[in-house]
């Protein structure tokens, strides 16, 4: 099971409440792992939240899940420091560098958020070229979703 809910101009807390209510979860307590990833206490439903500007996306699943959204952009210094040799080559050889950069960024983030370790895992320890994570985009807004064992 995987459901994605998108909201505009509301807080992360409100977005989570609305999303969980659709799964009949109205009373819940959050617990956090050592890296700060939130989970529902005593509940087998997983969730993950991403926001950019005024958009919030909530992914709800029965598996560990990570989601990331980002408006199309290109940050050369971030590429140089945090991307693998293969990822850098992919971007450098792309005609649309913003498209290539943003797609790789959301995949990296979604994967790290699924793992629940955040940046401490090391962005350049994730080679998205080898990961089968799909990226969708609605005009300039890109989104990647990563489920455990996917």
């Amino acid at each position: 099971m995987l459901k994605i809910y998108e909201y505009k101009n509301i807080s992360s807390k409100e977005a989570l409440e609305k999303s969980l209510a659709k799964h009949h979860i109205t009373h819940y307590e959050l617990v956090y792992n050592e890296y700060g990833k939130p989970y529902l206490k005593d509940n087998a439903v997983y969730f993950n939240i991403s926001h950019t500007k005024n958009i919030i996306v909530v992914a709800v699943s029965d598996k560990e899940v990570g989601v990331d959204i980002q408006y199309k952009c290109y940050k050369p210094r971030v590429k140089d420091k945090y991307f693998t040799k293969e990822e850098k080559a992919y971007i450098d050889n792309s005609l649309d560098k913003e498209d290539a950069f943003t797609a790789i960024w959301v995949k990296k983030e979604a994967y790290l958020k699924m793992l629940g370790q955040g940046l401490s895992y090391g962005l350049n320890n994730v080679d998205t070229i080898k990961l089968d994570i799909s990226v969708t985009n609605n005009e300039d807004l890109y989104m990647a979703i990563c489920l455990k064992n996917s």
Binding site: H51, T52, Q70, C73, K75, R77, V78, D80, K81, Y82, W105, E109, L119, L123
Partner: peptide, 12 residues
């Protein structure tokens, strides 16, 4: 700050 802002800041 979003995470991309954060790593951009660190790189700068």
């Amino acid at each position: 700050l979003e995470s991309l802002d954060l790593v951009t800041l660190i790189a700068e």
